[in-house]
Design a protein around this nucleic acid. Structure first.
Length: 584
RNA sequence: UGACCCAUGGUGUAAUGGUAACACUACUGAUUUUGGUUCAGUCAUUUAAGGUUCGAAUCCUUAUGGGUCAACCA
């Protein structure tokens, strides 16, 4: 990637000599210039910082709080932060923002690390805000010494009452003018555990009339006699976000601290603290979080879905969590491509989940092994077929000539999909119907001769004849058929369980509707059905990706046992016929 | 009734004072032993009003609309 920057500089200089340069090279530099223009606003800032020499390399960080599982929204931030240092010289740290011991657990730390790795990124340093508790404590002392912080004995209610409102200034706390000595003494005693939770806080002394509410003497430290997942019981005072995040950035010499738009008002405090502390000046930049329709991406809401058993866990394949998407069968490539395509900007947005599915299908189409699985079988008897033990071959993936072929047994009795037959077909229906011919994929052309029904009038068996000269790969019949059906051999089909997933919510934005978001859950988001698969399915592995022909993409679920294979439907195939038939 | 952020096809993102474009979606058609894929094409865009300018999506003003901010959360 260093190369591309070097080349860009070269291309830029080349303009001056354009009249001396041969035409092809000139044309090439034009092209590079054009590509160069398509930068998002962060890349623009970075290229500028690099060009002016403000930074020789950049350092970013991905800073999750370990209080939940990562979701698709985080993937966007991960791709952004790690993507930037892949494109430009520099590196990215993984930093856990673990300043609130009440909500944070090691289980989450582990899952976050797994998810980032799975997405395909490597961090330079694994860091924790809690690594810096000692330094942060020193910083607080320094602020007290400068007369810029004080210990406040007010209750949270009192503080809220004196905070004012966006249109009215707040009032000074009665403790605001304690002496430096007294503040220091109190703060040291706070640390040593003399006071109960909530009895005192350390606040920055800024301006209770400030137009930015965050600057109205924000709390820096609070007392929590709580066990911390890493520091154990060493501390009973913990820094707030605003007194940990920017400082951690500074300690790690982060050049571009990228966060979401709701932190814009924090930037003023971020800068104020760095200035007063006289520490390395990191800078914060904000982008708009990505929202996706028909789901929620808020840790609080996702946690509710888990704890109230609306889903089976954080990795339920319906969840927008990275672990859910992974179990569902998404590939890291498809998620990265998605994040790439939606880009980054500063305006509110609602991305269509259809784009995510497009990226998924695009990748799966290239890598998935083709298999035939019949979900709702109806039996076909080929009356003129007399062969035994015939084995046919079918390509594993027509998109990938290296993927080889597999064996498929064929016999007189097979199953096809019940809705691939219609007694009274509408126009443009080119599947099986009385008197009509179709091809059985990788096998023969058959013709429907007779329909056998049970007492209730349901189709029980369909009698067909086959065209011996139409064998796949050796077809001399010269018969052209419009339809090709997937099928399985009746005698050795393998029964499997298939979990079909639909969107978790019925509405595009459940948080924008009246009442509780859970009222808008889709009651049909999971359907468990049976499938009858060709025998080769038995060798399926957890890492395999399959396309069940004409149905969709599937993967083996971890709930599978030796005797019972369970598949997740990752995503359906696009279905042109479904649209066409709706018109009738 | 404050401050801050934002406003480009249905959706997402470009165009950095000089021809409004790319992708997804939708729709046509061709190809196809997956009604998939692929290929070709069509529809569709600058919130509004003023101003600056030879020229404005871009700069200025105002309006309108959306979002954010009053946890001892991050």
């Amino acid at each position: 990637m260093l190369f591309s920057i070097g080349f860009r500089i070269f291309a830029h200089h080349a303009v001056d000599f354009s009249s001396l340069i041969s035409l092809p090279l000139q044309a090439m530099s034009e092209e590079v210039k054009k590509e160069e223009r398509n930068l998002n606003f962060l890349e623009e800032i970075i290229e500028n910082d690099l060009a002016t020499g403000k930074h020789k390399a950049i350092v970013t960080r991905f800073p999750p709080e370990p209080n939940g599982y990562l979701h698709i929204g985080h993937a966007s931030s991960i791709c952004l932060n790690f993507g930037l240092t892949k494109k430009y010289p520099g590196y990215t740290n993984l930093r856990f923002d673990d300043t609130n011991p009440v909500t944070e657990e090691t289980e989450y730390v582990d899952s976050i690390k797994d998810d980032v790795k799975w997405l395909g990124f490597e961090w330079k340093h694994e860091r924790y805000a809690s690594d810096y508790f000692d330094t942060l404590y020193e910083y607080a002392l320094k602020l007290i010494d400068k007369g810029l912080a004080y210990v406040d004995d007010s209750t949270s209610e009192e503080m809220a009452a004196m905070k004012g409102s966006p249109t009215e200034p707040g009032k000074d706390s009665t403790y605001r003018n304690r002496s430096i000595e007294e503040n220091k003494d109190m703060f040291v005693r706070m640390k040593s555990g003399e006071f109960p939770d909530g009895s005192k806080t350390l606040r920055a002394k800024i301006d209770m009339g400030h137009i930015n509410m965050l600057m109205r003497d924000p709390i820096l430290y609070r007392i929590k006699h709580t066990h911390h997942h890493r520091t154990g019981d060493k501390w009973c005072i913990y820094p707030m976000y605003d007194f940990a995040h920017g400082q951690s950035d500074s300690i790690e010499e982060i050049t571009h601290s990228i966060c979401t738009l709701e932190f814009v008002p924090h930037r003023e405090l971020y800068d104020w603290l760095i200035e007063k502390l006289e520490i390395h000046p990191s800078h914060q930049y904000e982008f708009a979080r990505r929202n996706i329709n028909y789901t929620v991406t808020s840790k609080r809401k996702l946690l509710q879905l888990v704890t109230e058993n609306h889903v089976t866990g954080w990795d339920d394949p319906r969840m927008p969590t990275i672990s859910g998407l992974r179990r569902r069968g998404y590939t890291p490539e498809s998620i990265r491509e998605f994040c790439d395509r939606i880009g980054v900007a500063k305006r509110e947005n609602m991305v269509d989940v259809g784009l995510l599915e497009f990226c998924l299908r695009e990748h799966l189409n290239k890598i998935a092994l083709r298999r035939m699985v019949v979900f709702d079988p109806v039996k076909i008897v080929i009356t003129n077929y007399t062969g035994t033990g015939e084995v046919l071959h079918s390509e594993n993936n027509p998109e990938d000539t290296d993927s080889g072929v597999r064996d498929i047994p064929f016999s007189k009795e097979i199953f096809i999909e019940r809705d691939d037959f219609m007694e009274n077909p509408p126009k443009k229906y080119f599947r099986l119907a009385p008197g009509q011919m179709v091809r059985l994929k990788s096998a023969y052309i058959i013709k429907c001769e007779e329909v056998v029904k049970d007492a209730a009038g349901n189709v029980e068996t369909i009698h067909c004849t086959y065209i011996p000269e139409s064998k796949s790969g050796h077809d001399t019949s010269d018969i052209k058929v419009k339809g090709t059906l997937h099928w399985v051999n009746a005698t050795d089909a393998v029964e499997v369980e298939v979990r079909e997933y639909d969107r978790l919510f019925r509405v595009e934005d459940p948080t924008d509707e009246e009442g509780d978001f859970k009222e808008y859950l889709n009651p049909d988001s999971l359907k468990v059905v049976k499938g009858f698969a060709e025998p080769s399915i038995s060798s399926a592995a957890l890492t395999d990706r399959f396309q069940f022909l004409r149905k969709g993409y599937y993967c083996l679920d971890k709930d599978s046992t030796a005797g019972k294979l369970i598949f997740n439907r990752t995503v359906t195939l696009k279905d042109g016929w479904a649209k066409e038939s709706k018109k009738n």
